[in-house]
Design a protein around this nucleic acid. Structure first.
Length: 134
DNA sequence: GCCAACGTTGGC
DNA sequence: GCCAACGTTGGC
């Protein structure tokens, strides 16, 4: 089992949207590295939901309910989507500023490669985020 | 296959 | 709104 972080622009799709919908196919990932990560996602993996734009914070947890498959809507055979459902909204969002300020997250792609929209999360980092969200 | 030009993302 | 960083495209 692995952990991940998915990014979304809340104006486009927010965690609240996901809660309302109960589950969703995570679509629209075009970047090659992000797709590579997405292809490694498995059913049952845990995922942090990070909101870009005005929020810049991890706001909730998701779980993968269906592993990767090509996007049936898109023409591109390299496209990949996974299905996720919400687990819980964090009591307190964990902001990018906090993450940047904390040495425990040094070197993480969220800081190093701000344009990456799908990235792995180590168990250590997962727990650190959990602590900060309390 | 290289690289310049252009486009996009996302933090500030 | 700006711009740095990164990706992608297309001419050669």
């Amino acid at each position: 089992m692995a952990n991940w972080l998915f990014k979304s622009e809340p104006d486009c799709y927010s965690y609240d949207n996901l809660v309302k919908e109960k589950k969703t196919w995570w679509t629209g990932v075009a970047n090659a590295l992000a797709r590579k990560h997405l292809r490694a996602v498995e059913k049952g993996d845990r995922v942090w939901f990070y909101q870009t734009g005005d929020d810049k914070a991890i706001v909730g947890e998701m779980i993968v309910t269906h592993g990767p498959q090509p996007d049936p809507v898109e023409d591109d055979p390299k496209s990949v989507v996974v299905e996720v459902k919400p687990v819980r909204k964090l009591n307190r969002p964990v902001t990018l500023a906090e993450i940047k300020a904390n040495v425990a997250f040094a070197g993480w792609e969220l800081i190093k490669n701000s344009r990456l929209s799908v990235m792995p999360v180590t168990d250590d980092i997962w727990e650190q985020i959990e602590k900060l969200a309390e």
